[in-house]
Every structure is written in C-alpha cells, then in structure tokens.
Design a protein around this nucleic acid. Structure first.
Lengths: 192, 192
DNA sequence: CGCACCCGAACTACTGTTCGCTTTTCTACA
DNA sequence: TGTAGAAAAGCGAACAGTAGTTCGGGTGCG
C-alpha cells in the first residue's frame, strides 16, 4: 500500500499549486516542472488532473466526518461537543494547510457524480452538527438562536485559518485555539 | 453618464456567471449566449474579460471602505461601531449577492497592479476595523482577546451569507441580522 | 525478457481577442 | 423637417496561444 515517493511528491506539489493559484489556474506543465518531470511522465502515476483534486477533497471530507462521529459518541453535553468540533477544525486547518484550502474552495470544480457525492457528504456533516447545536439550545445551555445561523456562522468563521495561519505572527496553535473558542463559545452560551 | 442597457446587462450576466462557475471557468462565449449577443459583439461594450472582474471587485471595495469611514465618524462606543459594521456586511451581502460572491472569492484572478491595489485596500480596511476592536478591548467593553483573531473570525463568519441567502428558507434579512449580531456581539462583549 | 518509469512530440479542443464588414442609431446641417 | 454622414452596435470568421491528454518509443532494473 506504500505509495511510490514520486507519486506522493506529485500529490504534494499539486496541493501546493492548487492552493497558490487555484485548481483551474494550475497547469499540468507547472506541476511537471515542480516535480522535475516531463508532463507526459505525470500520467505514469496519475490518471488525470481531476484525480488530484478528487483525492484531496475526499480525504478531507473523511477527516471531518470521522470527527463528527467522535463528537456524537462523546459522553458530554452540547457545549463540550461543539467545543470539540471547533478544536478539530482548527487543528485540521493548521496542520494540513494546503489540503484544507483546496477542500474549502476548490471542490466545486469536481465534476458530475463526484460533485454530487461531495455535496451530500457535506450536507450530512451540516445536519449532524446542527443536531448538536439544537440540543444545546433545547437544554438551555445555549442562547435562543436560529440553529442554521449559528451553524454557518461558526463553520464559516473558521475558514480564514488555512489562509492566514502560514504567516502566523507569533501565535501558537494552542493559544489560537483558546482565543477562538473563547469568542465563539462565549457567544453561544447563555449568561447564567 | 447613464450606461447603455446592453452594457449593463453584460455586467449583470457576467456577475451571475462568475458566481455560478467562477471567473476562470466562465467563457466569453457563455456570456455572449446569456446576453443574446455574438462573442465579438461583447467587445463593442467592454475592453476585456478582466475589466468585468475589475469593476465588480473595486465597486465592492469602495462600498466597504465608505462603510468603515462612516463607522469611524460615528459618535459611539466600540461595540456600536462593530455592530454597525457587521450590519453593513450583512446588508451588502444580502442585497447584491452575486457581486459580493465575486468580490470575496475571485479577486485573486486580478492581474498585476490591480491585484496589488486591491490587496492594499483590503489591508487598509482590516487595519481600521482592528483599531475599533482594539478600542473596545482597551475600554473594557470587550473580553480580553487577540484583536487579529477577533477581526478575522468576525469578518470570515459573515462569508456564508452570500452563498446561502439566495435560498433563504423563510428568514428575513432583519431577523437574520439580529440573530448574527446576537451571536457575535454576545461573544465579544464582557459579561458584566 | 518484462515491467515500471520516463520522455519528446503531437493532437484535439477550447480560450480571449481581433479583423473587416454590415446594419442600426444618432446628429448636424440645409 | 428631411437627409447625409458619422458613430455605435452587431456580426462571422479567423488567429494565436494554451490546455489536458495520448502515443510510440526509449531506458534501466530484476
């Protein structure tokens, strides 16, 4: 199952390029140059350009879906579950920066059935996240708030990390995590 | 100064297409079809494809910069200023949906000096917004929080609106605005 | 030999844009 | 007011450039 190092390098450089310029703006010729190969040689390792995008998008989707499953199975209240998920987002976004960028912004260039599958996975994730928030509202842990609004505000609010973090100006992941949790959970929770 | 209706239609349809498929994925031939023109006829009204992108990006940038100027001149405390700016974002994002989408996501396909100018305008906006947040922290209105983290979390958290609002499921702009303000300002403010 | 890897060259498709020309619309003057 | 002429708008066809991908053939290792 060990992938050839060349193949691995191709995926790595592809991720980097897609992040820098976007999927469409990236050419196979650039990718070849970065990997010290000829364009045609790339096709000894991969089937198509879209395969690169596909792998990155679905690898990330899997990470998040596993995360929400863990959250659901947690013996904890809604606030702790939400907190766990926010932390997860932060950790993923700050560890595999390039992949997350593509996952966030370039998935829409997936074609046909891949796109459909991707969107249904995302929908699934959102539904399950919503459910947790709903529990928090019902139990009185959270303020009275429209669940959809809360869901998207939270999810979206984390989407600057993968763009900004690379040039992190003297702030650790840990303290970053604490700052964000502070702000978001403080907003969500009822003032007792 | 009144623009020809054809030219206006071209810009409108371009905005719609850029939103649907992205700038790069949109072709002039598609734009021609949408505007009931031949490709070559487009060039009687516009200079280039990038001109379309350029106009939309800078029109929006101007809107936001005007907004922050108004906020700065407000006779109000930091919380009220931040609240004003959040409301502004929501109102812009829900009124001119297509333009905001492009402004948010497609600016990076601006080329050369345009890109530089755009980025410096954005930087300016972020600096001035930061200053207001800093005032709120210093005065004790807001919780002790890293200003950069707060800035980007807030700004980014509003970036789902322009994608989601079109299919608004029975929620008015006004109540949407209230829900979001509730969540974000509750997060920012100190519990007295 | 067989196999995985690599290469140069080419192919087809499609891109934004231009060219020369016709048609429509507007304007200024008799 | 009527009309000539200019300007604006529209058009089909083509151009040059670039995209992703394929093909046939090489290379070196087991």
């Amino acid at each position: 199952m060990a992938k050839s190092p060349t193949k691995e390098r191709i995926f790595e450089e592809a991720a980097r390029l897609f992040q820098e310029k976007g999927y469409l703006a990236t050419t196979m010729r650039e990718l070849a140059e970065r990997t010290d190969l000829q364009v045609s040689s790339l096709y000894s390792h991969i089937g198509s350009k879209e395969e690169l995008l596909h792998k990155i998008c679905f690898d990330n989707a899997r990470k998040f879906l596993e995360g929400i499953k863990t959250a659901e199975e947690l013996q904890a209240n809604a606030a702790e579950k939400v907190q766990f998920l926010i932390s997860l987002h932060i950790r993923i976004a700050t560890s595999d920066i390039t992949s997350v960028t593509i996952f966030n912004d370039e998935w829409r260039h997936l074609s046909g059935p891949y796109l459909t599958e991707f969107l249904s996975m995302r929908k699934d994730y959102e539904k399950r996240f919503s459910k947790i928030i709903q529990q928090g509202v019902d139990s009185g842990e959270f303020i009275q708030i429209n669940v959809t609004v809360a869901l998207f505000t939270i999810l979206t609010s984390l989407r600057w990390l993968h763009r900004w973090f690379p040039e992190k100006k003297g702030i650790s992941v840990k303290s970053l995590e604490m700052e964000i949790l502070n702000l978001l959970m403080n907003g969500l929770k009822r003032k007792s």
